[in-house]
Simulated scan of single mutants.
Amino acid sequence: MSSKTKQAQKLLLFRLSGARLFGIGTLKIREILPFMRLSKLPHSHPAVIGTATFRGSAVPVIDMAAAVGNPPLTAEEQQKASIIITDIQRQEIGFLVRGVHEIIEADWKHVMPPPKALGDRAFITGLLDVDGDIIQLLDVELLLAKVYPESLVTRDVTLTDVESETLKALNILLVDDSQVARKQLSDVLDSKDISYQVTSNGDEALQILLKNNELGRPIDILVSDIEMPGLDGYELTFNVRDNPALKPPYVILHTSLNSEMSLSYANQVGANEALTKFDAEELLQAMLRGARESG
């Protein structure tokens, strides 16, 4: 592979409660709807304001401002608001926002990681300067985990002794900018006593790959998110495949995007597989396929 096709990365910009702009990738978005009458959901999280009917299905709607700790939209504000229907981690979720601003094209290389001073509970994965405005990219996985904490519970997966020992022998690297996704990935491997390395961005991942290669312990399995600040999962995969000095790992791109386009592009840049987050059984079976191929 001598050249890389560049996939346009688009962001939807919107407002929650003030003038500050937030953004999420458009590949996560199914549709943008004006506010509609919602059906109440009893015993739900306070940020879940009801369900909307979308293409014949009932979709829960979350007041995004309330979910991230801001005042919820008033009944009057809701009438002028929009509902962003998303497809994330195998489920359709609606997010109520004060107003949709615009869709822009963005290069993930220009996305900056959030300041460490914001702490572990910040609901942003990156910052992007657009014409002097700082756009905050929302960590929708963390937001969903707050509203639906049961989604963090990883079901147990049964492995044979041979499968378990096969995975324990691998040098595995996990890469994801979402702390929720890192926890899910780590939990499934920890539960099987499988060792691994983990990092939050593609630039650090590439350095870990090169360092392990130099030490004679090349990475066997690389599991990476797609949308990350700096070096995204597509570019990380391309860089790995395009570096003749690296012993090529088995690359699994792991994404919250339930999108045929994103999965097709993953194959174009050299990924062995692309999985939609999060299914522990699928992940471990993909790693076992990687072990068989590298073995």
Results as ranks from 00 to 15, higher is better:
residue 201 N to Q: 13
residue 208 I to G: 01
residue 178 S to M: 05
residue 192 K to A: 12
residue 182 R to C: 12
residue 189 L to V: 13
residue 197 Q to L: 12
residue 229 P to H: 15
residue 191 S to H: 15
residue 184 Q to C: 05
residue 175 V to Q: 06
residue 173 L to G: 01
residue 213 N to K: 04
residue 166 T to W: 05
residue 169 A to K: 15
residue 228 M to G: 11
residue 231 L to R: 04
residue 227 E to K: 12
residue 194 I to K: 13
residue 179 Q to M: 13
residue 164 S to H: 07
residue 207 Q to P: 00
residue 201 N to H: 13
residue 216 G to S: 05
residue 236 L to D: 00
residue 230 G to F: 09
residue 187 D to C: 12
residue 207 Q to L: 10
residue 162 V to T: 14
residue 160 T to Q: 03
residue 174 L to W: 06
residue 193 D to W: 01
residue 171 N to D: 04
residue 222 L to K: 04
residue 163 E to F: 02
residue 219 I to N: 00
residue 160 T to D: 03
residue 195 S to P: 06
residue 187 D to P: 07
residue 183 K to R: 13
residue 219 I to H: 00
residue 182 R to N: 08
residue 161 D to Y: 02
residue 169 A to E: 14
residue 175 V to F: 08
residue 181 A to S: 14
residue 237 T to L: 05
residue 226 I to H: 08
residue 162 V to Q: 13
residue 192 K to V: 05
residue 228 M to Q: 10
residue 223 V to M: 14
residue 193 D to F: 06
residue 231 L to T: 10
residue 166 T to Y: 05
residue 165 E to L: 05
residue 192 K to I: 03
residue 170 L to C: 08
residue 199 T to K: 10
residue 202 G to K: 01
residue 189 L to T: 11
residue 172 I to H: 00
residue 182 R to A: 10
residue 224 S to P: 07
residue 205 A to D: 01
residue 178 S to Y: 02
residue 203 D to C: 03
residue 172 I to Y: 01
residue 167 L to W: 01
residue 177 D to W: 04
residue 165 E to M: 05
residue 228 M to N: 09
residue 205 A to P: 00
residue 170 L to K: 07
residue 228 M to T: 10
residue 223 V to F: 10
residue 216 G to D: 06
residue 185 L to D: 04
residue 179 Q to C: 13
residue 183 K to Y: 12
residue 200 S to Y: 08
residue 209 L to T: 01
residue 183 K to W: 13
residue 179 Q to N: 15
residue 236 L to C: 03
residue 178 S to C: 04
residue 204 E to P: 01
residue 173 L to F: 08
residue 237 T to F: 04
residue 202 G to E: 01
residue 189 L to Q: 12
residue 211 K to T: 13
residue 181 A to G: 09
residue 174 L to V: 10
residue 214 E to C: 08
residue 186 S to I: 13
residue 193 D to I: 03
residue 198 V to D: 07
residue 232 D to H: 14
residue 236 L to I: 04
residue 207 Q to F: 05
residue 186 S to R: 15
residue 174 L to S: 06
residue 197 Q to I: 04
residue 203 D to A: 13
